[in-house]
Amino acid sequence: MNPNPQTNPQQASILGFGTALPAHQVPQPDITNLLTSHLQDKPDLARFARRIFNSCGVDNRYTVEPSYTGAAEDCKYLPTGDASGIPTTEERMDTYKREAPPLALEAAQKALKDAGTHPESITHLITVSCTGQYLPGLDVTLISQLGLSPRVNRLPVIFQGCAAGLKAIQMARDVVQGAPGSTVLVVCVELCTLHFQPVMEKEALFAASFFGDASASCVIGHADENSRHYFQLGRGYSVLLPDTTEDMTWEVGNFGFDLYLSPRIPRLLGQYIAPEMERLFEGEELPELWAIHPGGRGIVDSVEEVMSLREDQTRFSREILRTAGNLSSCTILFVLDAMRRDLKAQSSAAQNGVAMAFGPGLTAELMRFEYIAAKVASESEADHVYL
């Protein structure tokens, strides 16, 4: 039994995860046909769409909107004919307000159960979303439906894109380590498909090709002698990459939110990620575990190539992208949850890891972590040994 110098009993840990997907499942070929039917009078753009949709690494997505699961002529978001009836931003927000809370509630309940945490033990609630807004917000709804204390400290993280899930985890880590006795519930919910719009240019196809709907949650606090199979959180930070401000934008439009993704994003991330890893690890050996936000297949490809990773080190990111798509802020929690379940199933010993997520800015959220199978008492009350 060897002590691991990276572990620290005072550090915050992710004690439990919960994820939730909507009822409506849409295979990628179906949504490809839906979009190309919408583009029947733009054959060049339709051909480009098929190429992008077939090569983006997504096989399946989920949506709260049944309009995507029927006949092409009945889809109100991507109509084949008259586009005058497409939903306004107000109508899309009404759908968000109706559909987001039950999905978030499901994920949060699973996370609390997985962590073995009673709702009344939660001292801070961080809610995350960039695909919908209303007040009183999701946090108020969750307090009531989960049975949290009305005095819980509410910290909404809104409109910060795909990087916000990992940002929320790092905020929760800082809360737990700065305020002993705190336990934080993080809840992310994203209904990306509510913002699909008639396509007029190639750039819009990148966003339409891989986003889906989901919710994900986690409980962050201090591990105790009953804790099993958790991620102890290490240092991390957020960084704005230079000269990339216009490469990813997310703005409120009249018919939903307007997303622009530059095709050069994978190359830009590949250019900057290695120096940031050197800064994060300060000359230490790079970890075995890599939780990469799969913002698209090209992003995972770029990180894998630049950091000389094995295919098995990026398989969780690729699998989430393949089976559910890019879930915006929720995605990194899905990746970490899948990784933890696999480590548990393999009866893995402690392993070090790094998590990363990317969003508008361009922003990179980077964080070290360690998988711990179980905490055990040491021979000395002053020492703590983790397995």
Rank of each mutant, 00 (worst) to 15 (best):
F211A: 10
E276V: 07
A100D: 09
D383V: 12
G16I: 00
Q10W: 10
E305Q: 15
S317Y: 01
M93K: 04
E203C: 12
C75H: 05
A374T: 09
T331W: 12
A364H: 07
G283H: 00
Q170L: 09
H24N: 14
T63H: 03
K375C: 10
P3N: 07
G283L: 01
G178N: 05
A12N: 11
R340D: 04
D44R: 04
L268M: 15
S215G: 09
R279F: 11
I86K: 01
D41Q: 14
V186S: 06
L34V: 08
T183V: 14
K167D: 02
R267D: 15
Q177W: 06
F159Q: 13
V187G: 04
E120N: 15
S182T: 06
T245N: 11
Y62L: 06
M339Y: 02
K110W: 00
R267G: 15
I320D: 12
E201I: 00
Q346D: 15
M339P: 01
G116D: 10
F196Q: 06
S13C: 09
F210D: 01
C162T: 12
D224M: 10
G253I: 11
Q40I: 06
D243N: 15
M1K: 03
D114L: 03
W290G: 01
N33P: 10
L321E: 08
K113R: 12
L21H: 03
I126Q: 07
R340W: 04
F211Q: 11
T244A: 15
R228L: 05
L135R: 03
C130N: 08
V176P: 02
W290V: 01
F316N: 02
E106A: 14
F316C: 03
T323G: 04
N153Q: 12
C192G: 11
I52A: 05
Q109F: 08
G70W: 06
A357N: 04
P360R: 13
A83F: 00
V252M: 14
G147S: 05
L185Q: 00
T127N: 03
A72H: 11
T88M: 07
E203A: 15
R151P: 01
L259T: 11
R322P: 07
D44N: 02
P22F: 14
Q351Y: 10
E365P: 00
E201P: 00
I292R: 03
L112G: 07
A168H: 07
V187T: 15
V300P: 15
R51S: 13
G361H: 13
S217E: 14
G283F: 00
G18V: 05
D383C: 08
V385S: 04
A274W: 13
P119N: 13
L135Y: 09
Q145W: 08
D312Y: 04
G70H: 05
A104Q: 02
Q6V: 11
L309Y: 00
G137S: 08
A204R: 13
E99V: 09
H118T: 13
Q313N: 02
L166F: 02
V184R: 08
E225C: 10
E246G: 07
D301G: 14
N352V: 13
E246C: 03
T331Q: 12
S380P: 12
E276N: 10
G234L: 03
G132R: 03
L387Y: 07
L15S: 00
D41K: 15
N254F: 05
A163F: 13
S302E: 15
G181F: 04
L289C: 07
R264I: 12
P119A: 12
T36F: 10
I299D: 08
V187I: 12
